[in-house]
């Protein structure tokens, strides 16, 4: 099968679970001239069916958990979910609120967690680039599954569940290092 470069131009879709806006405006700030993630070919699109990477901010609650699920299910495989900000990671300061179920991982599998309140644009860039490594690994797994269906049992289990321990990524990512990250993910 020919090699397609999903990681060269990943499209992202953003949904605000129930965040305070802090992380949302930082996600938007990433798309602005100062941080300009379009340098990496990343485009923010409104349509989940166009997207490769799902950026979620904020916690999930009773009202929006179906919305989050719906958006996730509409995205085509391979897809990567990045939880941005501590609210999306684990519920954060709102985890004790009566209407908060917890982090996004309560509803959908999450591939990368971005800490910070609010998450800094630099951290978001790091995370999206980390996500690309995972995306490439998932895609490779899918390709292998198509080429040799017997060899692979299931394509791309969620990273959070399969990763045995904390994986330390280097602070600055280049496109070359994405491959290294992909290796780490496979382990």
């Amino acid at each position: 099968m020919s090699k397609a470069y999903v990681t060269k131009s990943p499209w992202v879709v953003h949904y605000d679970g129930s965040s305070c806006n802090g992380c949302d405006i930082e996600v938007l700030a990433c798309l602005m001239p100062m941080y300009d993630v379009e340098r990496f070919g990343i485009i923010n699109c409104g349509n989940p069916k166009h997207a490769d990477v799902f950026l979620v901010t904020g916690t999930v609650n009773e009202q929006n958990k179906d919305v989050v699920k719906q958006i996730y299910e509409q995205m085509p495989e391979p897809k990567v979910v990045v939880a941005i900000g501590i609210c999306a990671c684990s519920g954060g300061i709102f985890k004790d609120c009566y209407n908060v179920l917890g982090g996004v991982d309560q509803v959908i599998p999450v591939d990368a967690y971005v800490p910070g309140c609010a998450a800094r644009p630099e951290a978001i860039i790091d995370a999206v680039v980390t996500g690309l490594g995972i995306l490439q690994a998932k895609r490779d797994a899918m390709v292998e599954a198509i080429d040799a269906p017997a060899a692979i049992e299931a394509p791309a289990a969620p990273a959070a569940a399969s990763a045995p321990s904390a994986v330390k990524y280097p602070p600055i990512f280049t496109m070359a290092e994405i491959k290294v990250n992909a290796e780490l993910y496979k382990k």
């Binding site: 990368a112 951290a123 995972i134 330390k168």
Partner: peptide
């Protein structure tokens, strides 16, 4: 320096 993004909850 912020905590780096990770694939698990550190």
């Amino acid at each position: 320096m912020y905590t780096l993004p990770n694939v698990v909850k550190v």
